[in-house]
Structures are given as C-alpha cells and as structure tokens.
Simulated assay, not measured.
Amino acid sequence: MRIVHLSTVHHDWDNRIVNKECRALAEAGHEVHLVISADEDRVTHGVHVHAIQRRSRARRLLGSQWEGWRKVAELKPDLVHIHDPELIPMGVTFARTRGVPLIYDAHEDLVKQLTTKPWLGPRTARLINPVARQLLHLADANCAAIVTATDDIAASFSPTRGGRDRPVVTVRNLPWGRDFTVVDVARNPRTAVYTGDLTQERGASLMVHAIEQAPEATLVLAGRLLVPESEIERPQVDYRGLVPPSELPGIIAGARVGLIFLKRLPNYENSIPTKVFEYMASGVPFLATDFASWKQLFGGCEGGVFVDSDDPEAVVRELKSLLDDPERCAELGRRGRRAVEQEFSFEAEATKLVGLVETLG
C-alpha cells in the first residue's frame, strides 16, 4: 500500500511518527510517505519525508494545511494517517472525495491537553474546549480507524461507526528494543540525562536545580528548548539541542540515571512516559514523578525510583543517592531492561499497527 502520514504541528524527527509508526510500516513492506514541516526532503528508515514550510501557529492553520493536503493529493495515497486535531475536517473531506480510508492518531487527550498549553489562559481554554470536543466527534464519526497512545484515550472513542465495528487500536509509545544496547551504568560518570521537550511543566528548572546540588555531576539535556536559554545555562548542564531519534540511545547510554519530572496536570497524570521506557531499554534507572498510574505501571519492574517532584529537596536527595551508588543503579538498570525485553518493546506495538493498516487496505 502507499500510505501517507501528515502532520503540520509535530517536528520532522517526532519519535512516535517517524521512528515508530512510519518505520514499522516501511519495514513491513509498505510504501510510506510523511508530509511534515522540515528543512528539506529526505529518506529516513525507508520513509519518504516530504518537507513543507515551517510556519507560525496562526499561519499554520491555513498555509500549512493547504500546502500539506496539496502534497498528499499529489502522492495519490491508498490510506491517509493524520496526527493533528486541526487536520480532522480537511482529512474527513479528503477521505470522502478520494474514497480512501482515514486514520486519526490521538497522541494525547486533546481536551485535557488544553489545560497544559502555556499560551492558552484558563478562559481561552474553556472557550476552545467545545471546539476540541467537536473535532474529536467529527473524527469519531468519520474515520475508518482511530489509533491512540493509551488505553484511556482509546476509551473515549467509539468501537463502532454506522452500526458496524470500527477499529480503535492503542499503539503505545514504547522503544524499539533492538535500538538500545544495554550499558553497565556502574561504569558511567556521575551524569543524569533527560530527553524531550524542555518546558517548566516538564521540570526544566527543577532538573537544573537538582544537578547544581550534586557535587561533580553533569546533566545532559536533549530536546526542543521551550524555555529561555538562561534557564539552563549552567556549568553543570550539557545541552545537546534537538537530535534525531537515532542519536538518543547513545546519549542515554552515557548516563547513570534518567530523569522525568512532570507537573501534576490532567494530561500528564495518566500518560505513558516514553522516556522511562527508553531509559529502561538502555539499562539506565529512572528517577520519576510519583504519579499513581506510573507507580502502577512501572512499580513491579523495580527499574527506578519515584519521588514527589513537588518537593525539590526530596528530588535532590534521591538524585544524589542514585549518583552516589553506581552498583544500585546497575541493579535497577538490569531490572528495567528485563522488563522491556519481556513486556515493554515497540516490536509488539508495530505488529498491531501493521495489522490494522492491512485490514483497511
């Protein structure tokens, strides 16, 4: 099949879109294209990336949509897979007029996500909330299939459409087990790592504060910088910028502990944290916010430590304790890697996605 993925919101190295879903379909033998904001066309993991212009949020709604759908039409797809809520109306129209199946991919709970957007005030979020619900209803009523990142999000969509069964499939953001080589973290220097968007809601200042309290320790950060650069410019911070997913395993492998501290926001408390899985896949223990859902998901693995990230001094204590005990880190890391091998790898998720696509073709 010729499958076209489209996003006007996500960056062109998005791990879920490029390195997981598109890659899985290409490896299964399908012709996969991705239309997305990028600097230039390229081929990655057998996926043909078609660059559209990067635009501001306001200009994206019209300019990027027009350019993106024009490229999709030129590719004459057998199936279209969209990744942004704002693409739903045009996606439904395209699917109807061209007679091709449409998949909507819900990366996050859109309604809850609105409360985490720093550029939306509470009043604006309340005004937009009905629009978000209407978009999701439009997708629910018209898409041939829905793909979601969590079971909680999947439960918000209907398993039927027009009286017939309609697939709603959870494809979790797990790591490819084969991409990560297990390291002996006991031999690693006193280094903590975080990979992902750098925002205050994702603990940017907290991580910097904690590493400054740990003598002779370094914090390696890799991801989009969405806070002022002055927030992370410290002697103990090594900022690598936004890197391709293929470089993340090597960056993680150099650390003794992986960090993830999120604020207690509705969209985060029931999320599935990709970073924790990636740390575990490398044999690196995690230090993470003690969300109840995370403790339930990861607690039995004993691959890391949970902490109240609303208490900065508790975070400092736990981070110093891990950095000071390389043998404990190594044991936690071994347990985490074992859990990935047995339960938490994308290989199984890829099978679900490929199976879904092939039932629609």
Score class of each variant (00 low, 15 high):
Ala292Gln: 11
Leu323Ser: 00
Phe180Tyr: 15
Glu313Met: 10
Gly299Asp: 07
Leu322Tyr: 02
Ala288Cys: 13
Leu226Lys: 09
Gln236Ser: 15
Gln113Asp: 14
Thr359Phe: 00
Ala253Gly: 14
Val80Asp: 04
Thr199Leu: 08
Ile17Ser: 06
His30Pro: 08
Ser345Glu: 15
Leu138Asp: 12
Gly283Ser: 01
Leu6Cys: 03
Cys22Trp: 07
Gly121Met: 05
Ala106Lys: 02
Gly303Tyr: 09
Val35Pro: 00
Ile103Arg: 01
Gln65His: 15
Ser282Leu: 10
Leu87Asn: 06
Leu332Asn: 04
Lys20Ser: 10
Ala314Cys: 02
Ala348Ile: 09
Gly162Ile: 07
Asn15Met: 07
Phe94Trp: 04
His33Pro: 09
Asp290Lys: 11
Thr181His: 14
Leu242Gly: 00
Ala253Tyr: 02
Ala26Glu: 02
Ala132Gln: 04
Ala149Tyr: 04
Ser156Ala: 13
Ala51Ile: 02
Glu269Pro: 00
Leu75Ile: 13
Pro285Arg: 07
Trp294Leu: 06
Asn19Phe: 12
Gly196Asn: 06
Leu297Trp: 10
Val169Ser: 01
His83Gly: 03
Arg123Lys: 10
Phe286Ala: 05
Ser293Trp: 04
Glu278Ser: 02
Gly68Gln: 03
Met280Pro: 04
His45Gly: 11
Val32Asp: 11
Leu25Met: 14
Phe298Ala: 03
Arg54Val: 13
Pro245Trp: 01
Glu40Leu: 01
Ala154Pro: 04
Glu278Trp: 01
Trp13Asp: 08
Cys301Asn: 11
Leu206Ala: 04
Leu136Asp: 11
Glu247Asp: 15
Val182Gln: 15
Ile252Val: 14
Val32Met: 14
Gly241Ile: 12
Val147His: 11
Pro228Cys: 01
Trp119Asp: 05
Asp310Val: 09
Gly68Thr: 08
Val168Leu: 00
Asn188Pro: 05
Thr351Ile: 12
Val357Trp: 14
Arg16Val: 11
Thr160Asp: 06
Thr191Ala: 12
Thr195Tyr: 01
Thr191Leu: 07
Val208Thr: 03
Leu114His: 05
Asp165Pro: 07
Cys301Trp: 13
Ala149Glu: 07
Phe291Pro: 04
Leu219Lys: 08
Leu198Lys: 03
Val168Trp: 00
Trp119Pro: 00
Leu34Trp: 12
Arg202Ser: 06
Phe277His: 11
Pro235Gly: 08
Gly177Cys: 07
Lys76Met: 08
Asp140Tyr: 00
Met207Ala: 13
Arg59Thr: 11
Val354Gln: 02
Val4Arg: 01
Gly355Thr: 08
Ala73Lys: 15
Ala330Ile: 06
Pro266Leu: 10
Arg98Trp: 14
Leu79Ser: 10
Thr195Val: 15
Gly258Asp: 03
Asp78Met: 04
Ile252Lys: 06
Val276Phe: 09
Ala26Gly: 06
Ser293Tyr: 05
Gly203Trp: 06
Ser230Arg: 14
Ile36Pro: 09
Ala281Phe: 03
Arg133Tyr: 01
Glu31Cys: 05
Ala38Trp: 06
Ile88Thr: 04
Val169Thr: 10
Val147Ala: 10
Trp69Ile: 02
Ile82Pro: 08
His83Phe: 08
Gly177Ile: 12
Arg338Asn: 12
Val43Pro: 02
Asp151Gln: 14
Glu269Asp: 08
Arg126Met: 11
Arg54Cys: 07
Leu332Ala: 02
Arg164Asn: 05
Leu6Pro: 06
Leu262Phe: 14
Pro215Cys: 05
Lys71Asp: 04
Met280Ala: 01
Thr150Phe: 13
Arg317Gln: 13
